[in-house]
Amino acid sequence: IQHLKDKLQIQEHALNGADELILFNCEFDNYEPPLSSNLDQNILLHNIYKHLPHYPNIQVYWQIKGGFIVPYKRTIGIERSNLPKGISIQDIVIPSSQKTKFNPLLYECDLHKLKIIEDTLHSIKLPSNNGLKLLFHEVIKNDCLCDLITLQYTNNKREEEQRQQIIKQQIHFNGKNADELILDDEILTILNELKILYHDDIHRHMGYPLQLHHICVILFYDQIQFRHYKWPYFDQFLCDAINILHRYEKREETEMELYCGLKRVRLENIEKEIKSGNFISHVSTSDDIQ
């Protein structure tokens, strides 16, 4: 039993950074073959099953519930703090004709739409083990290369397009294969900023749970503009980053008031559109009412 605890602890620490045991239940009633609940935890498996017919060619089933959390010493407060400056992210201007008409409320008739979105996003298989290459490849495909490099301000649009084409050749950009991308920090200068954030004191205190592509999507998250179909890897990495970070927050110790980001949402007919329901998407919240 102790060996299983140790194995689960190693697994949870590697996957989630959570290695403090808070729950471990062996549901002996659901074991096949059944075992006694007062079983000696130090007994060897050989001694448990050696009396069964056909031993050792037998199949057994154990049902174990284990729960782990991030140790308190590696958690952080969630009060507002300023990130290191130096990252300039270009605002994306979307023509009004292309802007998504976003209704944050989910009604029963919209459930099938949400199901389609979830099925599409969750069925995506990563074609590469290098998350940063996948993310940068997607950013470049969506014409946002300028956010990965040092900007050179020019009024000549054609000159800038030619410069970006040269950069794509230098980093071996292939629209169909992210693995061919060369992550050169002298060209893709955003890499230097990501490394600074990775080695930040707060991240070190947490035990370095985030990878570079997680940090990058947190910096870029405003740019997705609800166009999830164009940003499948971005969306997945952002969800992963949020799931990792929330385990390290001391949410129970704060009295912060949060405000939802519906300030610019306009409802055409309040009487018809305000109904009982859930939010159809993540709703932005902030401790700043402005």
Rank of each mutant, 00 (worst) to 15 (best):
L121F: 09
S123A: 15
I64M: 11
T150P: 05
Y61Q: 09
I89S: 06
E138F: 12
H51D: 10
Y72T: 11
G67M: 10
S96K: 05
I58G: 11
Q59E: 09
Q63R: 10
E108L: 12
Q63C: 13
D147P: 00
S97I: 02
K133T: 14
T100I: 13
L52R: 10
R80T: 06
K141L: 14
W62G: 02
H137R: 05
L83F: 04
C144F: 02
I76Y: 12
L121Y: 01
E79S: 04
K101S: 10
S88H: 00
N155A: 00
Q90I: 06
D119V: 06
S123Y: 09
V93M: 07
H51R: 09
T150C: 05
P56N: 08
K50R: 14
Q59L: 09
H137Q: 03
Q90M: 02
N129L: 07
L114Y: 10
L145H: 02
N155D: 04
L106S: 03
P56W: 08
H122D: 14
K101D: 07
L132K: 10
G86C: 08
P104C: 02
K85H: 07
F136R: 05
W62T: 02
Y55E: 10
L135M: 15
K115N: 12
K101C: 01
W62R: 01
L114H: 05
E79H: 10
T75C: 15
L145G: 01
G77Y: 14
C109M: 13
G67I: 04
N142Y: 04
K141R: 14
I76G: 01
S88V: 04
T154V: 04
V60D: 05
T150F: 07
G86M: 10
I69L: 10
Q59D: 11
H137E: 09
N103Y: 12
H137L: 09
P127S: 12
R74L: 08
I124S: 13
Y153H: 10
Y61D: 02
I140G: 02
N130Q: 09
P71V: 01
I140H: 08
P53K: 13
I149H: 06
P127K: 10
Q59R: 12
P95N: 01
G131M: 01
L148F: 01
G86E: 01
K141W: 01
V70K: 05
I124P: 04
T150A: 07
I87V: 11
D119Y: 08
L135R: 12
F102R: 13
G66M: 00
R74D: 07
N103E: 04
S123P: 11
I89C: 07
H137F: 03
L83G: 03
F136P: 13
I69V: 09
P71A: 00
I58R: 06
K65L: 13
T75G: 02
S123H: 04
P127L: 08
L111W: 01
N82I: 11
I78L: 06
N155V: 00
L151Y: 03
P53Y: 00
S128I: 08
K73S: 12
K115V: 03
K73L: 06
Q98K: 06
L151A: 07
P95H: 02
P53Q: 10
H51N: 14
Y107E: 15
H112R: 11
I94F: 02
T150V: 03
N142V: 00
C109D: 12
D119H: 14
Q152D: 07
Y55H: 07
K115P: 00
T154Y: 00
E108W: 14
Q90A: 11
